[in-house]
Nucleic acid binder design. Structure first.
Lengths: 326, 326
DNA sequence: GTGAAAGCGCTAACAG
DNA sequence: CTGTTAGCGCTTTCAC
């Protein structure tokens, strides 16, 4: 293992100078800097992160917390999130991962990390987030929109996505829209419904109260919801499901009932989980920019405090993914 | 931040004694040990991993490498793998994650890690694995069976799983079995086919050569494969697909063609990806014990060298997940 | 501009 | 059994 002292000896300078040169300190003459950097290169010097950590009081570890790691189809984005973060993180950093629930009662042992990104699905995670904050760990909350943004927060602009999708559908000539909502207390439920209503209102379209059934973001609830909607005496032409899981449930119901999609009934999802391209027929849905959101979250986490502190909350635009279910 | 020196001062001993006591050294009198441990407890002492790292030349980081992080449905298991590893790792360890491809050309910068688990999908990862080994990083290869086990390796017993599933199907009264194979060069392709053939041979069942078509583990190839098989003048009753992705492709073809599953044609998959319970109809498949495999891999990685070195390769049994496609 | 010396929190000889 | 001392590789005063 080659250390700065080795380099110092060969270069005929002190190890202090080497340290400064490698850290691009303004104190060092460009010439020495150049020489030392080249030397480090040829000697194949790699800084010892452990030593840096000790003296700098930084671990160079940031941690991603994920909720409900092993349930349902909900952690489909884990891969994209990890990629987004790693692509943004400087190379000396490591990205550690933990299931949120796993560490919720054992926060002390997280004292090691420099920062945290919490991929949150529901407001049940708030206790955990508060606890992290109390430990003075810099954090950003990803994926879920915070009502009162006391923490840095990046999510997608859900209302905008649904609005655009509905406009698209209206342009196709559809006019009878129903929806299966998510868990009532969730902010995402509200936002998505907002986009839905706005598009319809703008197009001077209305819908009867029974066209709006409430689900809970699970596949099963999508199935039940579709069944309810489609056994109405005057059924809708389009069902907007507040997430892909429910859309898949709805599709399954239609398949069972022998209904053709989109001829008999069109289905729209939200999220664009990796699987949604493989449903039958492939699901038309609204894509969340998970990768970009993760990048942004990482940038925010790394930003020196004070740099950007005025804005806490960031919304990234969703996009339409038109497949064949509408 | 409370350090061992703080504890030492209060306890009226040297910091060395504290260090030894906390590390449960046999050199320390039980009474002192007890006293110091209690003191540490009340003072809420948390060891500084960075300092330990420096002196012990260990980072207390182990890294999970994942291949093809963002493609297709293939990284469905990421969540379970992470959970399995974290549940096994002692608390002072952090689990870092990287996409394999991302770091393949920049191995130097992972000199930090204490060990690696490589979740490998194909033999294309071998170059990377070799490179890791050359850096003297302890590693275990997860998920893919190594032909020549030079490294620790944990996989599932694929042949056994397929064999059992076929026996099950035969007991149901089925007798005309076809299969869609995976990438020919892959070990898993061979193993799964082996179980298939063995079960049929034992039951004195045969199949014509055209009942065996080759896919490449993608959904598209499953679709094409099913189409081929089902346009035969004498089509099979059951199609075994070498993974769930292809099974889903096959299902999609059947849905398009208006075939009922399993009445007209039964489909069997392999893997039990999270989504397979949500296909229409829900997929009957062979489950890999991903969580247990990950735990075992972690144990293997942590085992002190020499402890268990005779056995390098571990096979964990798969299980049958009977749903409704057969 | 550069170097000498101290120290981050911990472990490990060595001495007693 | 316990304490003294040194040192892991690096950054950072403080001199020069």
């Amino acid at each position: 293992m080659v250390t700065i002292k080795d380099i110092a000896k060969i270069a005929g300078v002190s190890h202090t100078t080497v340290s400064r040169a490698l850290n691009d300190s303004p104190l060092i003459k460009p010439a020495t800097k150049k020489k030392i950097n080249e030397l480090a290169e040829t000697l194949n010097y790699i800084p010892n992160v452990n030593a840096k950590s000790l003296v700098n009081q930084k671990s160079y570890i940031i941690e991603l917390f994920f909720s409900h790691l092993s349930k349902g189809t909900s952690n489909n984005f884990l891969g994209d999130v990890i990629k987004g973060i790693n692509d943004t993180l400087p190379r000396e950093y490591s990205l550690a991962v933990h299931e949120l629930q796993e560490v919720a009662n054992d926060l002390e042992h997280l004292n090691r990390i420099d920062g945290a990104i919490v991929m949150s699905q529901s407001d049940q995670d708030d206790t955990f987030i508060e606890a992290l904050a109390k430990q003075n760990i810099p954090l950003v909350v990803l994926n879920r929109q915070l009502d009162t943004p006391r923490f840095k927060n990046v999510t997608s602009n859900d209302a905008q996505g649904v609005y655009q999708m509905l406009r698209h559908a209206i342009n196709q000539g559809y006019s009878k829209f129903a929806c299966i909502e998510g868990v009532p207390s969730f902010r995402s439920t509200i936002e998505r419904k907002k986009g839905f209503d706005q598009a319809l209102t703008e197009a001077a379209l209305t819908y009867p109260p029974e066209y709006c059934v409430s689900g809970d973001f699970t596949l099963a609830s999508g199935k039940t919801g579709a069944q309810q909607l489609l056994s109405l005496s005057d059924p809708p032409e389009v069902i907007f499901c507040a997430n892909d899981d429910m859309a898949i449930g709805a599709i399954n119901y239609c398949l069972e009932a022998g209904l053709r999609i989109p001829q008999d009934i069109a289905i729209i999802g939200f999220d664009d989980i990796p699987f949604s391209r493989f449903t039958y027929p492939p699901l038309t849905t609204i894509s969340k920019p998970v990768y970009e959101m993760s990048k942004r979250a990482t940038e925010l986490l790394l930003a020196r405090p004070g740099e950007d502190d005025h804005q806490k909350q960031f919304f990234l635009d969703t996009s339409l993914t038109i497949r064949q279910s509408l």
